[in-house]
Amino acid sequence: MLSTLDSFPARADAHPMQPRLYRAHKRHRETPDTFTLELEAAQDDAPFTFAPGQFNMLYVFGVGEVPISICGDPKRSNLLLHTTRDVGMVTHALSRIKRGDVIGVRGPFGTGWDVERAVTRDVLIVAGGIGLAPLRPVLYSILAQRERFGHVSLLYGARMPEELLYMPELQKWRARLDLDVAVTVDRGTRHWRGDVGVVTTLIPKAACDPARTTAFVCGPEVMMRFTIFELQKRGVSDENIVLSMERNMKCGIGLCGHCQWGPHFICRQGPVFRYNEIRDWFALKEI
């Protein structure tokens, strides 16, 4: 089938609205309602490069398109990874993708976490629920050059133990001596031996020097709101609190207007923002 695609643009950004074809290499369940898709290029061998924090528009033919963060290792450009919750028509169709099925991909779009700016600093990665997905590439990047950073902690919260993503990896990360991993759940179960409580309760205990700490935060907006509050209490400055925002998106390139948030297009100026850039908007409702 590759021969039929000769006329197709090689670079995604020359025709940003044209999907490139990707084939499902694997799909596996993470939690009862989330799954990870591993995609490989079906039409050309151009490596897919992205910055941690960027997203793709995933297109199921005839069903629709959704913006999903890229959650794989930026160094492994042959496989494109997306963790998604099965909540809508398109994500439900994605949840039924089988190995070998082809979908369309546009991207990568948006801003990244800019891990480079945190070099030599302490790092707090604060994730709520599926918010760990866009932060996982940050961890990969940091761990690939661990010596360039100060103290690094992952603070991760989910509603229930069975909603924790990437369990095998979490276990591996926890075993490392150069990474603090703290996990908490809102409600424990009989077999849960870890912390119980919202993720913000982990922030006062996290080992870091607030004056030289960068915090990468992703989760539901209410979780981010209280996380900011706790980080500020510790003394982390607003410009070193970095967040990823979510809004409706139809194009991913700043033209459809859906993701507007005050003067910002979340797909272009975001989804990753420094808190000092968006403080005023974050405080307002229904923007």
Binding site: Y59, G62, E65, K250, C251, L255, H258
Partner: peptide
């Protein structure tokens, strides 16, 4: 005003899929 949305269309055979851009409103 420039906002738009996408509509996905298929035929009954499921062998054809189209994406249409349409004006949208905030």
């Amino acid at each position: 005003c420039f906002c738009s949305t996408m509509e996905d269309v298929t035929d009954l055979s499921g062998e054809n899929a189209e994406r249409w851009r349409k004006w949208d409103s905030c």
